[in-house]
Amino acid sequence: MKKKWLLSIFASFMLVSGIGINAAEAATAEELTSTAKQYLGAPYKYGGTNIQTGIDCSGFTRYVFSQFGITLKRSSKEQYTQGTAVSKSDLQPGDLVFFNTSGSGISHVGIYLGDGQFISATTSDGVDIDDINDPYYWGSRYVGARRVAEFTTEQAEEVKEAAIDYSIYASRGEVATRLAQALNLDTSDTNSSFVDVKPEAKYAGAVTALQKLAVFTGDDNGKFNPGSPITRGQLAKVLVLAYGLELKGEAPTFADVPADHWAYEYVSILASNGIAFGKNDGTFGVDDYATLEHLDIFIERIQNLK
Rank of each mutant, 00 (worst) to 15 (best):
V148E: 12
D115I: 10
T177E: 01
L239C: 10
G116E: 15
Y266H: 08
G59H: 07
A121R: 02
W5C: 07
V195T: 13
V195I: 13
A11E: 14
K37I: 09
L6E: 06
S272T: 10
F254N: 08
N304G: 01
I132N: 02
T152K: 03
E150R: 10
A276N: 07
R146N: 09
F68R: 04
S34A: 03
Q303R: 05
Q52D: 12
L72R: 04
A271Q: 07
V159G: 00
Q82A: 15
D220Q: 13
H108V: 12
S75K: 05
T187K: 15
P226D: 05
G59M: 03
F151T: 00
N184Q: 14
D165R: 11
Y63F: 13
L15M: 06
Y289A: 07
F298W: 15
L7F: 14
E78W: 13
G47I: 15
G278D: 10
A11C: 14
D95Y: 04
R172P: 09
D134L: 06
S75G: 02
A162D: 02
K212I: 09
A209R: 08
S104E: 05
D288I: 11
L72K: 06
V195C: 03
A180F: 03
L239N: 09
R178A: 06
D296H: 10
T35W: 07
I106V: 14
F98I: 13
G144T: 10
V86N: 06
P43D: 08
V109H: 02
R172M: 13
P226E: 07
T84I: 15
F118L: 01
L305A: 01
P226H: 02
N100D: 15
Y266C: 03
V240Y: 03
A149C: 10
D125R: 14
V127M: 04
L247F: 11
Y169C: 05
D296G: 07
V267F: 08
G222Q: 06
I9F: 13
S140P: 00
L210M: 12
T208P: 04
V175C: 12
G218H: 03
K88S: 08
G173Y: 03
P199H: 02
Q79R: 04
V267Y: 04
G222W: 04
Q211P: 00
V109K: 03
D95K: 02
G69A: 14
G222K: 06
T122N: 09
R301H: 14
G110L: 08
S167N: 12
T190F: 02
D131T: 11
A180G: 13
L213D: 06
V240M: 08
R141V: 05
D287H: 11
R232V: 03
V109P: 02
S120P: 04
G83N: 04
D296Y: 10
D128N: 12
T84E: 13
A29Q: 14
F68V: 11
G54S: 06
